[in-house]
Structures are given as C-alpha cells and as structure tokens.
C-alpha cells in the first residue's frame, strides 16, 4: 500500500470516528430533548409533584439537586485544589507523592455505589445525619474529589516553568508564586475538573439514593432528605410511573449541565480576557 493511500485511509478512519462520536452524542441528547422538552414549562419547574410524580412538577428535586451538588463542589473544590497544589508544587517526586497519586487514581476508579455505601454507613448512620442534603453532599464530595485533584494537578503542572522562575527571580515566595502565577494559569484546567465534578454530582443516582433519600418533599434544611432529579428520573422510569415525566426530568438535567458549563466558561473567558 502506498504512503498516500495509507494517509488517505487514516484521514477517512479518523474522520469517521469523529463523525460517529458526534452522531451518538447528538442522538442521545436529541432523543432526550425531543421527548422531554414538550413536558417542560414553568409549572413543571416550579411546582411539587402530584400522585408520586405521575403529574405536577419537579420543584423539590430541582432544589435538592442544586443543594446536594453545590455542597459537594463547595467542599471538594478547595480540598482538591489544595491537594493538587501540594502534590505539584510542594513536594519532590517521592514515595509519599506516588502513594497519594496512586490513592487518587484508585479512588477515581471505585464504583459510585461503594461511595454510597460508605456514605450511608459513615454519615447517615454513624454520624447520625440521616438521609439528608448534608449526607448526600458529603458523599458526592468524596466521590468527585479524585477527579478534581487529578485535573487540577495536571493543569498546575502544565503552567510553564518559566513563569514560576520569573516569579521566584523577582523575590516571590513559593506561596506568592502559587497564588499569583500558578493558580491563575491553571484556572481553565481546574475549572474543567470542577465542571466534571458538577456533571458527575448532578447525574449520580446510586450514591445519593443511599445517602440523601428519595422523599418528594421540599427540603427546609441541610438535614432534610431530598430526591435529586437523577434519582427522580430513575424511580419514574424504573417503576413505570410516567415516561413523559421521566423524560421531562432528564431534559432539565441535561439543560442544567449545559447551562452550568456555559456560564462557567463564559466567566472564565471574561477573567482571562481581562488578565491577558
């Protein structure tokens, strides 16, 4: 086979792979939106479900999802970024760093239901938090922590060494260099990790069923149980309660993730444009 033919074949194969991936994504999102969007209106978003979810809206689940996710991200982001800074900037490659990295990688590969079980035993039972926003948020925080650590560490390591050296050469301490040069430079990558964490939290079912509960009531405090949208969707579909309502919920879920991503990257664009 001539080199030219191999080249053309490669281009075709690579292009087809890209096309297939794009088509699959469009198909899934399109299918959910096509079935779900007609169900969504203001009432669907802002009223409580009726008859176990056969009718009415999903307001308590929207609130529950936002609360559990916000809590998880608010806990996991600072913890994850600080761990990543420590691993990337404050230690030399050694046994402890490799152990940390191995633990992070292993943690990232654990099925979510195991985190659910752990959260159930620790937060729900042992610490007496019960099925609650707090238990669910803490469990999800542990679950997304490795994702945030890994992406943040990679982003931090990708910041040019020359920037650090300039900062040190101008009399910067390690902490000044980290906060003024390294973290701002790593911000896009860190944000990507946080967004992955948001998506995982919003879409998680197994871990939250075991820790946040399945109630349809509106939560009044962090110690109240909630049914997140993903869990609501799962129960509606699994128990054949209402496929229309299930699709509606799924569509809101997808729009929420898209919306959060859009806002986050828009903000990032504004920050980096100002910084130059």
């Amino acid at each position: 086979m001539s080199k030219d033919r191999a080249d053309r074949l490669a281009i075709t194969a690579l292009g087809l792979s890209g096309l297939l991936t794009g088509a699959l994504l469009t198909l899934i999102v399109g299918h959910v939106l096509a079935r779900g969007l007609p169900v969504i209106d203001a009432a669907f978003l802002l009223t409580a479900p009726e008859r176990m979810g056969r009718a009415g809206g999903i307001f308590p689940s929207v609130v529950g999802t936002l609360a559990v996710t916000a809590l998880a991200v608010a806990i996991a982001t600072p913890l994850g970024v600080m761990t990543a800074v420590y691993l990337a900037e404050y230690t030399r490659e050694g046994f402890f760093v490799r152990l940390c990295r191995f633990a992070t990688a292993a943690l990232a590969g654990i099925p979510s239901i195991i985190f659910g079980l752990f959260g159930f035993v620790l937060f729900v039972i042992r610490l007496g938090l019960g099925w609650s926003v707090l238990s669910g948020g803490l469990t999800l925080a542990i679950m997304i922590l490795p994702i945030i650590i890994r992406t943040a560490e990679e982003a931090i390591r990708a910041v040019p060494r020359s920037w650090r050296e300039i900062s040190y050469a101008l009399g910067g301490t390690r902490w000044q260099t980290v906060t003024r040069v390294v973290l701002p430079g790593a911000l896009p990558g860190v944000l990507t990790g946080v967004m992955l964490g948001v998506a995982r939290s919003v879409g998680e079912t197994a871990a939250v069923i075991l820790t946040a509960g399945t109630t349809l009531r509106l939560p009044r405090s962090p110690l109240d149980p909630v049914r997140t949208m993903a869990v609501h969707f799962f129960i509606l579909a699994r128990e054949g309660i209402s496929m229309d309502q299930a699709y509606g919920t799924a569509a809101v879920l997808i729009l929420l993730i898209l919306g959060v991503n859009f806002v986050a990257y828009w903000l990032l664009g504004r920050i980096t444009a100002r910084r130059g």
Partner: peptide
C-alpha cells in the same frame, strides 16, 4: 531577600500573563 537584590533577565523574553503595568509592578507588589 537575596533575589530582590539580584535581578535576573532570562534568555527567552517571557511576560507573565498579566498587563504591561502588572508585569512591572509584580516584584514591588510581592
């Protein structure tokens, strides 16, 4: 403290990802 007394210019011209002003003000601010 030593590096504040002994400045260094590197081989590859590298601005920090900041404005012109903030680049010059970087050291004094630190």
């Amino acid at each position: 403290t030593l590096r504040r007394r002994v400045g260094m210019v590197f081989a590859v011209p590298t601005p920090l990802p900041l404005s012109v002003y903030d680049n010059v003000a970087y050291g004094p601010r630190l």
